[in-house]
Simulated scan of single mutants.
Amino acid sequence: MKVFLKVFIIAFICFFLIFNGLVWGFNYYMKDNHVGSGTVVPVIEEGQENLEPDEIDELMKIVNESSRINFVLLGLEGLRSDTIMFVSFDPDIKKIDLISIPRDTYYPRAGYNGIGKKKFNSVYGDHGAIGVKTALSDILLDIPVDYYVTVTYSGAESIINSIGGVPVYISHLMDYEDPYDDPPLKIYFEPGHHVLNGEDGVKFLRYRQATPGSEGVSYADGDLGRIKAQQEFMKSAIKKTLSFRLPSVVTTAFKFVRTDINLQDAVVYATKAIGLEMENVSINVLPGEPKYHGRTSYFVHDIEETRNLLLKIYGYEEDTDN
């Protein structure tokens, strides 16, 4: 019996060390490999809108009392984040809230004075995914951004294919061509119902405007129109995903993304999301409007309305007794 116990204990320790070594290696190599340089230092400009201290305290109080897990989803086009989404999951009530962040959101940083550098989608190239977490938390009034998830075009293709494509309704002719892209890009979709595979799904998500002279239709409100189309695609993809076993979908997706969520936590969160219904998925856009700074158009977010949206997401109920 003593010999058996000794062998069992030694075998168990060996298994434990090997297993933990594999998990450590997996989690280590899942990190995004673009680190960037320096820390994000936002520029406080003269006349910039600010909240009152009691407004900030009220928001932070309900955030600190919440068990929500927040992360930023980045769809990457080289060193620029072509798609940016804040995703907040409440495991207690099985609810997901998303906020699309326009890529042209005005975000000036100390030491980065070029025109393009004042747009939020340039943060990733300069500071990596960790820097994006810091910058997004700043825009969202210090709401914590716990994790990042980055995915490239090829990764998005694979994930879409893994769930059997995504059904979408396309309301207008999409016709765009860029022979200088690598590889050359051709987007063409007739209006109507489609089930888009990975390659076509990525093309749909990338579409912004028609090629001049073609019969294609550009989004009337530019990048905001593109965001709305991306949100509809995401709703359809989430609905399709919920028909699968969610933990297995997360495990599959891990092959194609880079993230600082470790595998153990991802499976735990996915397990907690089992039973999630589409009516508990809310998709929003960062409040604000396009404005010009000099000769360049940016999207300038509204701080007060951003606070109101975050209060709503975190379930704040105004006291009507007073």
Rank of each mutant, 00 (worst) to 15 (best):
E58Y: 01
Y147T: 06
M60Q: 15
D175W: 09
K117H: 12
D200P: 05
V249F: 14
E318M: 03
N284T: 11
K239R: 11
A273S: 15
T134H: 15
G38K: 03
G131Y: 08
I170K: 04
R295S: 15
V202W: 07
F89T: 02
L76K: 04
K235M: 09
N322P: 14
A273C: 15
P212Q: 00
E45I: 07
I93E: 08
L286F: 13
G116E: 11
M278H: 04
R80Y: 14
L185I: 08
K228F: 09
F4M: 08
V151K: 00
E49C: 00
W24L: 10
A273E: 14
H127N: 13
K240I: 03
E190F: 05
K31R: 12
D54R: 04
E318S: 10
P287S: 02
D32V: 02
R208I: 04
Y180V: 01
T152E: 13
Y153G: 09
N50A: 14
S81I: 02
G155F: 06
S282Y: 15
G288I: 05
V40H: 05
Y107G: 05
I159R: 00
E215I: 00
E190T: 03
D223Q: 03
R307F: 10
N70S: 15
R295W: 14
Q231Y: 11
V267G: 07
F19W: 11
G222F: 02
V35N: 08
G36V: 05
E304V: 12
K240F: 03
N70W: 12
V257P: 15
L310C: 12
D138R: 00
V132S: 12
I99S: 06
M174S: 07
L246N: 06
I170V: 13
V268R: 04
Y29N: 08
F299M: 03
Q231C: 12
G36P: 15
L173N: 05
P167K: 01
K228E: 15
L76S: 09
K235T: 06
I163S: 07
I18T: 13
V202A: 03
D182A: 06
F8C: 04
D104G: 02
V300S: 11
S236K: 00
T296Y: 13
E45P: 08
V217D: 08
V3G: 11
E49Q: 05
H127W: 01
V151E: 06
Y29C: 00
L5M: 10
G75M: 04
F15N: 03
E55L: 08
G128Q: 03
V250C: 03
M174Q: 12
M174G: 07
Y169I: 02
A135N: 11
S297C: 09
D92W: 01
N262G: 12
K186C: 06
L242M: 12
D302Q: 08
G294H: 09
H172I: 01
D175F: 05
M278F: 07
L17W: 05
L74W: 11
Y292G: 04
I10T: 10
I160D: 12
M278Y: 07
Y28N: 10
P167E: 06
G216E: 08
S81K: 00
E77I: 00
L76D: 12
D97I: 03
E177K: 08
E157I: 03
F26E: 10
I84E: 14
E305K: 14
A266V: 02
H127G: 04
I56K: 05
K119G: 04
D57L: 13
I313L: 06
